[in-house]
Design a binder for these strands. Structure first.
Lengths: 192, 192
DNA sequence: TTTTTTCGTTGACATATGTCAAGATTTCTC
DNA sequence: GAGAAATCTTGACATATGTCAACGAAAAAA
């Protein structure tokens, strides 16, 4: 149940068995079925989720009621609305299971506790945020000022694994293009 | 010279005079004239810069030789290419002074030293990255899947201070639209 | 100041992408 | 396995945004 989390921590911070045990004890396992929500817009996000199994995604709802996908997350990764988590303000995000999931939840209090009492945990989160920031920056580079085709190509290159696991229209939304446009682009690319 | 940096640290982590002094001793002040570079693409980014005075921006160069602005930074903020800084790989970014600047540079070794030896510094950077991540996420929300006008309006709302300090064509680039389009949008908005 | 460079605006036109609607496929659910 | 949802594809058309080129205004450099 905690395999991937332990792996994730050990890969970033050398830790003793005790420290790991202490960390583990603050998480709550939770199963989620496909289409169930971890967070709904309007609520305050009070926890972060580490995915041991399955896939999740987050999205906002725009003025016309359409989804705008912000993030995909799979086994071994975290998902949350950090904005709401840190500021304690209402979230604009929905976080939903794309597949049946096994999650490890860490709520805000436990997070604070670990930060204060387990130095390795602070280092772990620092590295996590560091990497998350860099990843987001790269996403931005792969988005702004590019044509729809360029965006998709970059995405396909970088995240080929995702493509077979996520509905196409969600990828379109993630890239900020319409499903129709994406469908046409794929057809074009295939015909070369 | 160190006023804003000290302020920035104190705002995030309660620290003693000694700790602050220790931190300060690892930074190198540097002046930069308008149009001078802190980093050029192809080099490895070996330092982060805290801006005590002035304004900087970072950008990539696309296939057709055009600029794509990634970030603006002013007094009290940091600028760097964290991707290159952490991975030690060649940077694709240029970081250039928009105005004459007074910077405080922290190179990679000093950064590592502070992380190891000053717990407050690790907490400071953790919070810094946390905030940077959230800010970037919000930028993404204000970019993907919006019309040019929506992007500009959100930007103008959120960063009204920047608008009077940065050439318009750089803002256009930052938003991923052409200078011509931005000019037209501004005209439209003004006529209401 | 004068000169030069950078920056912003505007017009005419081209084009990528969005919109709407219908039908075909695939995937879930019972 | 049958029916129901969800997803993907395609066409016709609308429209936002990009491109190219020229000019004027503003700012920097000399």
């Amino acid at each position: 149940m905690f395999e991937l989390l332990i792996k994730s921590i050990q890969a970033k911070v050398p830790s003793t068995e005790e420290e790991l045990q202490l960390c583990k004890s603050h998480f709550t396992p939770k199963r989620l079925r496909r289409k169930q929500f971890l967070l709904q817009e309007g609520d305050v996000c009070n926890r972060t989720a580490f995915i041991e199994k399955g896939a999740m995604y987050s999205y906002t709802t725009d003025a016309k009621g359409g989804q705008r996908v912000m993030q995909f997350a799979f086994e071994g990764f975290w998902i949350s609305d950090l904005y709401s988590f840190f500021t304690r303000e209402e979230s604009k995000l929905n976080i939903e299971a794309l597949e049946d999931c096994e999650l490890l939840l860490l709520d805000h209090e436990q997070h604070e506790y670990l930060l204060k009492n387990v130095p390795q945990y602070e280092t772990y989160t620092r590295i996590l945020y560091q990497n998350a920031y860099v990843a987001l920056q790269q996403r931005l580079e792969g988005t702004i000022g590019l044509t729809a085709e360029e965006k998709y190509s970059k995405f396909a290159e970088q995240y080929s694994a995702i493509i077979n696991r996520v509905p196409q229209h969600l990828i379109a939304s993630y890239l900020g293009i319409t499903p129709e446009t994406l469908s046409r682009i794929r057809k074009q690319i295939a015909s070369r």
